[in-house]
Design a protein around this nucleic acid. Structure first.
Length: 432
RNA sequence: GGUGACGUGGCCGAGAGGCUGAAGGCGACGGUUUGCUAAACCGUUAUACGAUGUAGAGUCGUAUCGAGGGUUCGAAUCCCUCCGUCACCGCCA
């Protein structure tokens, strides 16, 4: 969301900002509506002032026993004008917020120009892709060979884009989540949170998924939305709050399921666990002052990268270009992990600085102790990491074709109950 | 699911149709006093929008007492709907 006053003051800057997102100039329409609205508002306020004054007189006259009929008639007429003006004001207001709430955030200057993901810029590359031969099996082959990854059974109850894991792989998934959560909570200073997974309209509006991206979400019959990411829950913790700046930044982390309809993704990543309706993710959210957010963004990205370092997985970090950066973000780093089965780097984390975009929607302000002026806080979010995709990465990178097993990364061993590797289940039953 | 109570400023808490943007208290800020701190005393202390205007000082107006409707000349106060909170009961992980 944006401040109309800022737009009024410097419309060109906003249009230039949106132009980088490929949008036509928006401010002429916004400002025209704004001007109409203010005109209506002024007239409405004048009418209200007159009504208030006349009503006061009526009171005086009546209390002294006089006849106020003609004044009361005046007010009755006034009320008709007011009703018309109010309706007009309402419409104009709605129009303006309808436009403003669907406009994306303004990008930072250092975000590279570009059309789509091909124009993203690599920032750093850590580790070397191990198996470059095309024979590397993908996670589906590995998981099914081990007998612990079952798409058919999942489809039986849930349809496409679901998976059922069991035995060692199920355990591995849990271990991965544990490692991430412990690392962020114990080493990176994030407060562990177990938040609601069903949220209301205002929460999803606050983080920017609504009103524009409703079709990407699942909705319950009670009107709740299933969170597409814990960013929604964690960020909305501070909705409607005024925060003491000396207490910032707040850092929250949570391990939650995420639910996405994948409405626009038909035919994309149909094989395997890459793109599911439901997956686990460990999320990081930071709430900062405006001065802290840029540094916090770098820090958060490092926190995410640390997980990959612990798991000794090759990855690269890229900065998204103008065409690929999400709706609410001013700047986004994606971390991509090497997947031998695809011979490609694939997104495993996305760390975004949203500036005050979400804070404005949520009315989250901060204030220096003792001062009374408030300013909007800044919010950041990042995956730390997507658990399902990390599982894929571990399976594919730690697959041993000689032994036909998956070795457990050292960092995960403490969470695997003594297990050193995952080997094929040697019985016919799917579930042990 | 049932019943009942309640939702007021940064916080607590009065108010029960007009003189209430809202008593009182706490907190915060400014000042007096003070060797320092503390205490005491005095004062200030909501937000948004609009008009006017200027160095974003001020002045005036409007709106805001959970949200949205309604009644009324006039609503924080009366009525309706919704949302939320709390308590007790039922059911249940």
């Amino acid at each position: 969301m944006f401040d109309l006053k800022d737009i009024r003051k410097n419309p060109a800057a906003f249009d230039q900002g949106w132009a980088r997102r490929g949008l036509d100039p928006q401010t002429p329409q916004i400002l025209a509506l704004d001007e109409q609205r203010r005109d209506v508002q002024t007239r409405l306020q004048e009418a209200q002032a007159e009504r208030n004054e006349k009503s006061r007189e009526v009171g005086k006259i009546k209390s002294s026993g006089g006849n106020a009929d003609s004044l009361m008639q005046d007010v009755a007429t006034l009320k008709e004008t007011m009703a018309a003006l109010e309706a007009r004001d309402q419409v104009l207001n709605d129009d303006i917020t309808a436009i403003l709430s669907t406009l994306p955030n303004i990008l930072f200057d250092d975000v590279p120009n570009g059309k789509d993901e091909h124009d993203n810029v690599e920032i750093r590359k850590i580790g070397t892709p191990t198996r470059l031969n095309t024979e590397s099996p993908d996670h589906v082959a590995i998981g099914e060979a081990l007998g612990m990854m079952d798409f058919e059974t999942a489809a039986k109850m849930s349809g496409a884009r679901f998976v059922l894991l069991h035995s060692g792989i199920a355990r591995l998934e849990r271990a991965i989540a544990q490692l991430m959560l412990d690392t962020h909570a114990d080493e990176h200073g994030y407060t562990e949170v177990s938040p609601p997974l069903l949220v209301r309209d205002n929460a999803v509006y606050g983080t920017g998924q609504l009103p524009k991206f409703a079709e990407d979400l699942f909705k319950t019959t009670t009107g709740h939305w299933l969170i597409p990411t814990a960013e929604v829950s964690l960020t909305n913790m501070v909705a409607d709050e005024i925060l003491e700046e000396e207490n910032l930044p707040y850092r929250f982390t949570a391990f939650t399921p995420c639910f996405r309809s994948e409405a626009g993704a038909s035919g994309k990543d149909t094989r395997g666990m890459i793109r599911q309706h439901q997956f686990y993710k460990v999320e990081m959210v930071s709430i900062t002052t405006p001065d802290q957010s840029v540094a916090e963004h770098e820090r958060m990205t490092q926190c995410a990268e640390n997980i990959l370092k612990k798991l000794e997985l090759p990855y690269r970090t890229i900065m998204l270009c103008t065409g690929d950066t999400g709706f609410g973000a001013r700047k986004t780093y994606d971390i991509e992990v090497w997947l031998p089965g695809q011979q490609a780097y694939r997104e495993i984390s996305s760390c975004s600085n949203c500036g005050d975009f979400q804070a404005r929607r949520m009315k989250t302000r901060c204030r220096k102790r003792g001062e009374k002026e408030t300013r909007f806080a800044h919010t950041l979010n990042g995956s730390g990491l997507a658990v399902g995709r990390t599982l894929i990465a571990v399976l594919e990178n730690y697959y041993d074709p000689i032994e036909n097993c998956v070795h457990i990364p050292a960092a995960l061993k403490p969470y695997m109950g003594g297990l050193e590797k995952l080997s094929k289940i040697d019985h016919n039953k799917k579930v042990a």
